[in-house]
Design a protein around this nucleic acid. Structure first.
Lengths: 307, 307
DNA sequence: AGCCTGACTTGAGGATCATTCAAGATGACG
DNA sequence: CGTCATCTTGAATGATCCTCAAGTCAGGCT
């Protein structure tokens, strides 16, 4: 009888952690189909049912919990031990960011980064989930939030302003409705736990509708729904700017609300001596400074250029 | 960058434990070449030298020690956790034994075992190394020794007698030398740390030669050398009987020396409820009892049948 | 009740990879 | 100097893993 593949077991641990094959597959850089095959093979190999499959993801059976409890901590230990073997390449940097900030802000600037640092190899990982720096071989990440992540270094890049956005088609569908009074518009839920719609209506007036067309667990999902014309989203200007410039979204009114959240470059202590990160960080902070100088258009009473 | 294969890392841990690619390959059921390729690939993958190769096996570099220290205990934990998944098949038994006892005593009797237990599937592993029941998916083993293995159950099977054995060719080469006085014969070293030659000469007389033709670290290796006609070995009668009966070895003289070592069936507590082992054990103990009744031929002053 | 969506399943095929084989190198030992 | 044990390395082959495509199923919404 051949020995059980620990690669297979490691995938099981990944699935157990995520609770969804789709999420685990994303992190493992595989298709859901591949992971599904692997989980089935592992169960047959061990002669036990480890996962309960459902339309909302997977959960562990009693046997699955038992196995996960027995081996999960060991995989953590191994992954932790292996992290130090990633840092030998100072000329390669692995960065994680959400799809929104990745495509709308970082990607368009990368040609300049490549031009100024031709020897630095970037590995970009696009994910809505926060990086677990204890387990994942990632050097740094772009994050949106308040910058308070224990154990991590955080460099503030730039702030964010929120404003209602919708597709031109939705605006047309609403006929002559007043774009500065959103009381009767269909609103998409704001993923921020604090529900920034409350703040927005409190600041700019109007009656906050009691229900939303739909709710989301990530900004990227919410933006996607707004692009589908499902309703009015409370758009983040930084990540929506390119969509607005392209005419795919329009801002309703001129009420840009600042929020305590901002964009940050974050990295763990183990990345501190990474020379590639040091070079990237200098470049990124310079780009962010330039970007901040252009952001005044969202400040209150700003003079807007007429186009 | 794809994730490092933990199967590869596990092989490294195996190599580190054994100190020899050849031994680790044996346990991993691979060729030495396969393992050599894997170790080289791991070193390239991590960008570090982990092993120092030599004609006497491998040793860990400083980096290798560091890696082994960091991950070895976790692989132990995973292997330990996985042990319980082997016991679900009560109708399959994995048994380990040295090649000597395996081929000379157990194999010839297996047809009777299969006849009386047709539903029991035996997985036989032949190895000179003692099984590590904490790590290896083995249910039980046949062992030669004093039966004092902490934490293991040991059922005594039968005793052992030692007598000088040599090939007919060597005997012919020695001309008319007295086979009952081995003072001038070329002796092969006895692997037993107590060096049973000392006991033998003390008991049966003669001058113990001060040097040996060769020395060995296992009984199987010593028997192999005796079969090559290298010298006179202190043969274990149980495992050499079939070779003697076949005329490949002859006993010099009639001095069969009993020893405190015996043959045992050993198994860990986790195998106690294994119903396949219970059945196999009953059968084995009965076969051993029958065998003991035939062993009197090696007792002192036994009447030997003339053939 | 019907439809849509997200999540997972399954069989087949192709590409990749892991293992073996064969020939070789190297150091220790007699 | 020859032998032996141990490991190395390139090439070839068979096995395996992953993706693709088509499918099922449950939950949510209208």
């Amino acid at each position: 009888m051949t020995r059980l593949s620990l690669d297979l077991l490691q995938q099981f641990v990944l699935v157990a952690r995520h609770g969804k094959l789709s999420r685990a597959a994303e992190q493992a850089h595989l298709t859901v189909s591949a992971l599904s095959h692997q989980m089935r093979q592992l169960e047959e190999r061990l002669g036990r049912r480890l996962l309960e499959r459902g339309p909302r993801g997977v959960s562990l059976t009693v046997e699955g919990c038992r196995l996960f409890d027995a081996v999960g901590v060991h995989f953590d230990g191994i992954e932790h031990a292996l992290l130090r073997y990633r840092e030998y390449r100072h000329d390669a940097l692995t960065l994680s960011a959400s799809p929104g900030i990745m495509s709308s802000w970082l990607m368009p600037r990368l040609p300049r980064m490549v031009a100024s640092h031709p020897d630095l190899e970037l590995n970009l990982q696009s994910s809505s989930a926060l990086v677990d720096f204890e387990r994942e071989p990632v050097d740094c990440a772009l994050r949106y939030g308040r910058g308070e992540w224990p154990g991590l270094h955080a460099d503030r890049l730039f702030a964010e302003w929120l404003a209602p956005v919708a597709t031109p088609e939705l605006v047309a569908r609403m006929g002559g409705a007043n774009p500065e009074d959103l009381s009767d518009w269909p609103l998409l839920g704001d993923p921020n736990p604090a529900d920034r719609w409350r703040d927005w209506f409190a600041r700019y007036g109007g009656r906050l509708p009691s229900r939303r067309v739909a709710n989301f667990d990530s900004l990227d999902a919410a933006r996607h729904a707004a692009l589908e014309g499902l309703g009015v989203g409370l758009g983040r200007m930084v990540t929506s700017k390119s969509l607005i410039d392209a005419g795919m979204l329009v801002v309703l009114g001129h009420n840009y609300m600042p929020v305590p959240e901002a964009y940050w470059l974050v990295y763990p202590p183990r990345s501190q001596e990474h020379r590639g990160l040091q070079a990237f960080r200098e470049w990124l902070l310079a780009e962010a400074k330039t970007f901040r100088e252009q952001m005044h258009v969202w400040e209150p009473d700003a003079v807007l250029p007429v186009a």
